[in-house]
Simulated scan of single mutants.
Amino acid sequence: MIAKRKRFFTAQRAAEQMSKPLTKTQIRNKIYTYLKNMGGYKHNQLKGKSYEEIQKLFDKTYKQVNSFVPMASDDMEKGSEKKAGGSRKKTLAKKRAGEKQSEKSSKRQKIEDDAEKEELKAYLDIIPRDDVAVSVESLATKYPIVDWKTRVLSEDKMYYEIIKANRSTKSYKIFTEMLNDFDRQDVLDLYRLVKERFETASLEGYDRLLWGDLITVFEPSKDDEVWKAQQDYTLISWRLFDSCGIHVLLMDTGIAIHMLVEKTYPLTQEMLSRMLSGKLEVDNKSEMTFELLRFTRSQIEK
Rank of each mutant, 00 (worst) to 15 (best):
T234N: 12
R151A: 10
V187C: 14
P128Q: 10
Q185D: 12
G205A: 04
Y206A: 03
T150M: 15
D156S: 13
K149S: 10
R208H: 13
D186G: 07
L188V: 08
E177S: 14
A140C: 04
D189R: 05
I163Q: 09
K222Q: 10
D213A: 12
L179N: 06
E161G: 05
T150E: 15
P144L: 09
L240H: 04
L193F: 02
K173I: 02
D130W: 06
K222L: 05
E204D: 08
I163L: 11
D223R: 10
K121H: 07
L124P: 10
D125W: 05
I236T: 08
D130M: 07
Y206K: 13
D207Q: 14
I215T: 11
A133L: 14
T176P: 05
T141G: 09
F198T: 08
Y172F: 15
V134E: 04
Y172T: 06
E161R: 15
K142R: 13
R192E: 14
V132I: 10
V136R: 11
W211H: 13
Y123I: 02
K228P: 01
V136G: 10
D242S: 15
S243V: 06
A165T: 02
F241Q: 03
V146F: 04
T169W: 07
L203I: 00
V132S: 14
Q230A: 06
P128I: 12
V132R: 14
V217R: 02
Y191F: 15
A133Y: 04
V146E: 04
S202P: 01
F241G: 03
K121G: 10
I215F: 03
V136S: 15
Y143L: 07
L188D: 14
I215A: 01
T169Q: 11
D125H: 08
V187P: 09
I126R: 13
A201Q: 11
R192Q: 12
V136D: 15
A140D: 13
K228V: 09
E225H: 12
T150L: 11
V132N: 13
L179G: 11
Y159H: 13
L214A: 01
M158G: 02
D130F: 09
D189S: 12
W238D: 03
R192G: 01
D213E: 08
D189L: 03
L188R: 12
D181Q: 06
E177G: 10
A133C: 06
K170Y: 04
E177D: 12
E204H: 14
E161F: 03
E196C: 07
V152W: 03
K195V: 00
K149Q: 12
L203T: 00
D189W: 04
S237F: 07
L153N: 14
S221G: 09
A201P: 00
L139W: 15
P144I: 07
D213F: 09
L190W: 12
A140G: 02
R192A: 09
N166L: 08
Y160N: 00
